[in-house]
Amino acid sequence: MKRFNSKQVTAFFRVIALVLPLLLSANTLVSASTEPKAPVAVSASAAVSATAAAPEEEKAGEVIMHHILNNNVFAFPPFGEVHLPKVVVGGFDISITKHVVMLWLVSAALLIVFSIVGGKYRGLSARQAPTGLSNAMEALIDFVRLDVAKANIGHGYEKHLPYLITVFMFILFCNLFGLIPYGATATGNINVTLTLAVFTFFVTQIAALKSHGLKGFLQHLTAGTHWALWIIIVPIEIIGLFTKPFALTVRLFANMTAGHIIILSLIFISFILKSYVVAGAVSVPFAIFIYLLELFVAFLQAFIFTMLSALFIGLGSAHEGHAEHEAGVAHH
C-alpha cells in the first residue's frame, strides 16, 4: 500500500497527518464537523463526492494505472524521481524501465543471498546442520526439491531442479520486492510472466523430446486416435501445448496485478469519499489486510508457477499413456 507516485504519496501523507490527531482524539487540526458528528460528516462528504465523483475517479484510475504499469520513471516521492535511460539498439527499444530495474534488483538480491548461503554450504560437512539464513533458505529449497520437483517429475528430477528453484526464488523475490515501498512488481507485468512461462514451455518440450524422441513426441500429438481424426486432434493438441504456458502467464500476472489494484483502490476510497473516518476505519485497515494477504499470495503464486512447471515437465517426460496425461491436465 505504500508504493506511490508523487500524487499518491502526498495524498497519503495528507491522510496520515489528519488521521493521526483523530486517533489521538486531538481535534485541533480537524474541525468540529469530523469526529463528534461522524455520521453527518460521512453523509456530508458523500454528498460532496457525488458532485465531484466523475473527475475524482478518473484521476484515481489514472494514478492506479500509472502505478501498476511499466514506465521510464522511478519515482521516490517526496524526494524526487529518477529518469531511466532510453536504449534503442538496431530499431529495438530495450529501454531500462522501472520493471527492468526491479528485475535487476531482484537478481542482485538473489545472487547476494544465495552466494552467501551456497558459500556456507561449501564449508559444511554432512553431519552439521545449517543455521540462520541458510537454514531458512534450505527449507524453501528442500520444499521445491522434494514436494514440487520430486513429487511431480519423479525419476530424473535432478536435471530440472536448478531451473525450478531459480524460477521459484525469482518469482518469490519479485513478488516480495513489489511489496516494498517505492518498489514495483515486475511479475505484475505480463511481459515478464510471459517470458518465464516461455522458459517453462521450452524446458517442458525439450524434456518431452528427450524422453520420447521425435517420433514419440509426434505420436503424442495424435493422442493415439485413428488417423481420420488427426485433422481435428492434431490442431487441438498443438493448441493444448500453448495453453499451458498461456495459463501460467495470465495466472501470475493477474494475481500480482489484482492485489495491487485492490490495495490502491481501497486507499482511493477515502479520497473519493473525502472522509478521514473512511480512511481510518476502512481504507487503511483493509489495505493492511490485503497487504498481508499479498505477502501470502507472493509465496503462493511462486509456488503455483513452480508447481505447474514441474507438473508440465513431469507430464511431458512421463512414460504413461495419454489418458493419465489428460487426467492430469484436467485436474489442474
Binding site: N70, V87, F92, D93, I94, S95, I96, T97, H99, V100, L103, W104, S107, T166, F170, A186, N189, N191, V192, L194, T195, L196, F199
Partner: peptide
C-alpha cells in the same frame, strides 16, 4: 507488449 522488457527478463533470468 514490451519487447525490451521481454529481452531484459530473458537475459536477466
Amino acid at each position: 507488449p514490451e519487447p525490451g522488457l521481454i529481452f531484459w527478463t530473458a537475459l536477466t533470468f
